[in-house]
């Protein structure tokens, strides 16, 4: 009997062993906030997704370069696969270290007065770490959130930050970019590059359109996307290690 079961999309390479890595980092970290963060660990590799404590994170910035650009706002939405609880959500506007351009002000719908009253990243970074501790972070395009949080920790706590994430954009890439660019043959039959941006990805799951670039809205949008991806392509019992990176 021949079975053909393409199954759920697989990651390109073997996933890292995050519980071990975090335990190691806990031993190396100097700053107590980072020590506490690493000691909280993360769900075990074989933990079913439906049992994992998750937290959707979105960071809005003045640009894409974490060394040059600054954080403008952060949205955090702790959730479980079956429920996103808005009452637990956090949203924080911060005073950026670099000058906020007029474009990014309109882009993020944040005003100068919002920012003038806002705390500096330095005074919120520890709160953010506490919120993230012990949970599996869910982002759409991990380079931004990882890069900017790492940079913020370097600046304010003196050391970098590493943590596991489930990247909903990467999950989309596995589905739609698995074989790289569509071949000339596939293009012949009309296969086009699928956009894996947040809003476009959500549309594929019939999720509603939101106003983009508000950190909390985007964090919730990301959490909803993971719910949809899990129910569509995986199962609620899928091991977290198959999704994280």
């Amino acid at each position: 009997m021949i079975r053909f079961n393409p199954g759920a999309p697989q990651p390109a390479s073997a996933p890292p062993d995050w519980p071990r890595q975090l335990a190691q980092l806990a031993g190396q970290a100097q700053h107590p906030a980072l020590q506490a963060f690493y000691q909280a660990g993360c769900p075990a590799a074989d933990c079913p997704l439906e049992d994992a404590p998750l937290i959707a994170l979105d960071i809005e910035t003045t640009g894409l370069n974490s060394r040059r650009d600054a954080i403008v706002s952060l949205g955090l939405a702790p959730f479980r696969l079956n429920r996103i609880r808005c009452s637990d959500a956090l949203y924080q506007v911060v005073k950026p270290t670099s000058e906020l351009s007029e474009e990014s002000i309109t882009f993020h719908r944040i005003t100068h007065s919002d920012i003038n009253q806002a705390p500096r990243v330095a005074s919120v970074i520890e709160t953010v770490l506490e919120a993230l501790a012990g949970k599996l972070v869910v982002v759409h395009y991990r380079a931004i959130e990882r890069g900017f949080l790492d940079q913020a920790c370097r600046q304010h706590l003196g050391e970098g930050l590493q943590f596991p994430v489930i990247d909903t954009m990467e999950l989309e890439a596995r589905l739609h970019r698995g074989d790289g660019e569509p071949s000339w043959f596939q293009r012949l039959f009309g296969k086009r590059h699928q956009s894996i941006r947040l809003a476009d990805s959500r549309l594929r799951y019939n999720l509603p359109l939101y106003q983009a670039h508000h950190a909390l809205t985007d964090a919730i949008a990301t959490a909803e996307l993971l719910q949809a991806q899990a129910l569509t392509h995986y199962s609620p019992q899928v091991s977290v290690s198959r999704l994280w990176s």
């Binding site: 996103i84 808005c86 009452s87 909803e224 719910q227 129910l231």
Partner: peptide, 14 residues
């Protein structure tokens, strides 16, 4: 009300 909302996604047919 919005602050107390919880959100869940259901596939067609569930």
């Amino acid at each position: 009300v919005a602050r107390q909302v919880e959100i869940a996604y259901f596939k067609a047919g569930t």
